[in-house]
Design a protein around this nucleic acid. Structure first.
Lengths: 202, 202
DNA sequence: GTCTATAGAAGGATAGAC
DNA sequence: GTCTATCCTTCTATAGAC
């Protein structure tokens, strides 16, 4: 047949992105073929090129949309600038956990497939990611200034906290031993302790 | 020629592992071809199969050797059981940082390429990794018991701390803004604060 | 122990029919 | 908008010469 009955370009474009995201997350960008993606979408391989110029663009778009979405969502969820650094930090931790757990595949891709980006695409992605890191770094710096936090280095601490939180995506499962609310409380406590700077004994 | 002058099977075997490690870390397992590895070793692709049955075994061996080395090194570096939980934790943090930074490529592979392992190989690797996680979990549990640490969940906290520390490998560079000793101090402080459990204000 | 050559499969991407 | 067919490249792995 020349054209699938009930075919819909808009839907196919959306399906393509979803299928690619799922497959890249599961097997890795380099290990997934355009034919595999096409099969999951339910079209032939050639048809994919109506929606993406090539495989690389598909990866880049997935990452960029994810990071743009992350930054945009924070802008709508963050507390007013008048909020205390501690309140803002707690909001950030909660936001980061929920946003990332809801998008485990995209997160995985955005962290794991940087190597497979062309240099110019990597530069763009890195810049967007850096803007997100600066969100947390700014919160920590604000709390350092007010004396609410005891932090020896805001940049390193922001890296450390983001790595800690994002690490959740590697082991979290629904129906696990603890509820998400319980898990979030554990992490809130760890982060709060980390920035509250107990004195080292040794 | 039939055989390279000065060829040495032992050296080639070592070179093969080193070349594969470097390339897998840089480009990803699936994106690296046996031809690329062979070129880096300085032999033809066919010759590699004298030293590994296939590409999968190469990946598995790299991971397994890394994790076995990690566990073995900890056994020689850990403090006696008579040491305090806090001292043992500090030792663990220092050990983990240094061991991982010295082996950035292996660490990257061991964390990133789990998806590309065959199921039976994944099971073996996961079990070895779990034994390492239990090292930290045990230290935290000991400190919880003595009252030195205020930890709501030892398992989650061990995951969180390992993720935080391992995250260093993604950004650490020699000749960076801070010396390794300074960085280690920042992380020691963050970990100590996290397990010392400041009370949450909210 | 390493080479050359190649089998056999699979990959990304394009052309043209419908 | 999608399909079929295909070009051309690259891949893993093996066979056999030296």
């Amino acid at each position: 047949m020349a054209r699938k009955t009930g075919s819909d370009g808009k839907k196919t474009a959306t399906d393509l992105r979803a299928a690619a995201t799922a497959l890249f997350a599961k097997h890795g960008f380099a290990a997934v073929s355009m034919r595999q993606i096409a099969q999951k979408v339910g079209v032939q391989a050639g048809a994919l090129y109506l929606y993406t110029p090539n495989k690389q663009a598909l990866l880049f778009d997935i990452m960029q949309q994810h990071l743009d979405g992350l930054l945009g969502a924070w802008e709508t969820e963050k507390l007013p600038d008048s909020a205390t650094p501690l309140a803002q930090l707690q909001r950030f931790v909660s936001f980061h956990i929920h946003y990332h757990l809801d998008r485990a595949d995209e997160v995985f891709i955005a962290y794991m497939e940087l190597r497979n980006l062309l240099p110019e695409n990597l530069a763009t992605i890195s810049e967007t990611r850096r803007r997100y890191e600066l969100v947390l770094e700014g919160i920590l710096a604000a709390g350092q200034k007010t004396g609410d936090f005891q932090i020896s280095d805001c940049k390193l601490s922001s890296y450390a906290i983001i790595a800690m939180l994002t690490g959740m995506t590697t082991w979290y499962r629904d129906q696990g031993r603890l509820s998400l609310a319980e898990i979030e409380q554990v992490y809130q406590g760890l982060v709060y302790g980390a920035v509250s700077g107990a004195k080292t004994k040794s």
